[in-house]
Simulated assay, not measured.
Amino acid sequence: MSDISYRDLAVQGLWKNNPGLVQILGMCPMMAISNTVVNSLGLAMATILTMVVSNGLASVIRHWVRPEVRLPVFVMVVASVVTVIELWMNAYLNTLYHVLGIFLPLIVTNCIVIARVEGFAARNPVLPSLYDGLMMGLGFGLVLVALGVIRELLGFGTLLANAQQLFGPMAANWTIHVLPEQAHFLLAILPPGAFMALAILIAIKQAIEQCRAARLAQPVALELPKAATAS
C-alpha cells in the first residue's frame, strides 16, 4: 500500500493508539511483571521482538493462507517465534527467564500481538508490517518500563535492582538507591499499586491531550469575535 505513512504508524503506536494507554491491551503481564525496571525491560524486549518478527512473517505468508485458517496459522507463527525467544532467554538469561515465568509463553495469547498480526500485517507489505510491529511494541514497552520505574521507585526505593539478570555480571552494581527504607510504599509493588500507577499514566496522557486540544482551539475562538465585528 503506497499510501502508508511511517510517521502515522509511529504516532499511532507510541501515542494516539498506544496499546497500554489507549487500547488497554496486555493488562495481565503489564500488571504482574512491572514491579521492577529490569523485569519490565525483559518482558518489553521479548514482546517487541515477537511483534516485529511475527508481523513480518505474517505479511510474507498472507497471500498463501486461506481466510478460513488464517487466524490459527498466525497463532502458530506467533507461538513459534515466542518459543525461539523463550529458549534463547532460558539459555542466556536464565535467571530473568525464571523470574518472568509463565508470562513469557503467554505472549502468544497477548491481544496486542494477535491484533496487529491479524489487523495490519495480514493486509500490508512486509516493511510497513515490520515497522508497525516495532512501533506498537515500543509503545507497549514504554508503558511497561514507566510502570516499572514508578513501582520499583516507590515500593523498593531503588532503580535497576538486579540489573545483572538482563545485562550480565557487569551490571551487578548498577542499582540506584533513591529513597530510604522508611519511605518505601509497599502498596506500589502489589497488584493494586500497578492499577493505580497505570491510572496515573493514563490521566497524564489525557491531560496532555486536553491541553493540546485547548491550544489548537484557542486561535479559532479569538478569530470569531473579530469576524463578528467586521460584519
Rank of each mutant, 00 (worst) to 15 (best):
G13L: 09
W15P: 01
K16M: 08
N18L: 02
P19R: 10
G20W: 00
G20S: 07
G20Y: 00
G26K: 06
M27N: 10
M27Y: 13
M31V: 14
A32Q: 08
S34K: 06
T36S: 15
T36F: 04
V38A: 06
V38G: 07
N39W: 00
N39Y: 03
G42K: 03
L43N: 01
L43T: 03
A44C: 05
A44I: 03
T47S: 14
L49Y: 00
M51F: 03
V52D: 04
V52E: 06
N55C: 15
V60R: 10
R62L: 06
H63C: 04
P67T: 07
V69T: 13
V73P: 00
V73S: 02
F74P: 00
V75A: 12
V82L: 05
I85H: 05
W88D: 04
Y92W: 13
L93H: 15
T95M: 09
Y97W: 14
H98N: 12
L100Y: 07
I102Y: 05
P105D: 10
L106S: 11
I107L: 14
C111D: 07
C111F: 11
I112Q: 10
V113K: 04
I114M: 14
A115C: 06
A115K: 08
R116M: 07
R116K: 13
V117C: 14
E118V: 12
G119L: 09
F120I: 10
A121T: 04
R123G: 13
P125A: 12
L127N: 06
L127I: 15
P128V: 10
M135C: 14
M135T: 14
M136P: 01
G139V: 01
G139L: 03
F140S: 11
L142D: 00
V143S: 05
G148Y: 00
G148T: 02
I150V: 15
E152M: 05
F156W: 10
L166H: 03
L166S: 05
M170I: 15
W174Q: 03
W174K: 10
T175K: 14
H177R: 12
H177W: 09
L179W: 04
L179D: 00
L179S: 01
E181F: 07
A183R: 11
L186I: 03
A188T: 03
I189H: 06
L190W: 12
L190A: 14
P192A: 04
P192D: 05
G193P: 02
A194Y: 02
L198C: 08
A199I: 09
I200F: 15
A203C: 04
Q206M: 11
A207V: 08
I208T: 02
E209Q: 13
Q210L: 12
R212C: 08
R215G: 10
R215V: 12
L216I: 10
L216K: 13
A217L: 12
A221G: 07
E223Y: 08
E223N: 09
L224G: 01
K226V: 11
A228V: 14
S231F: 12
S231K: 13
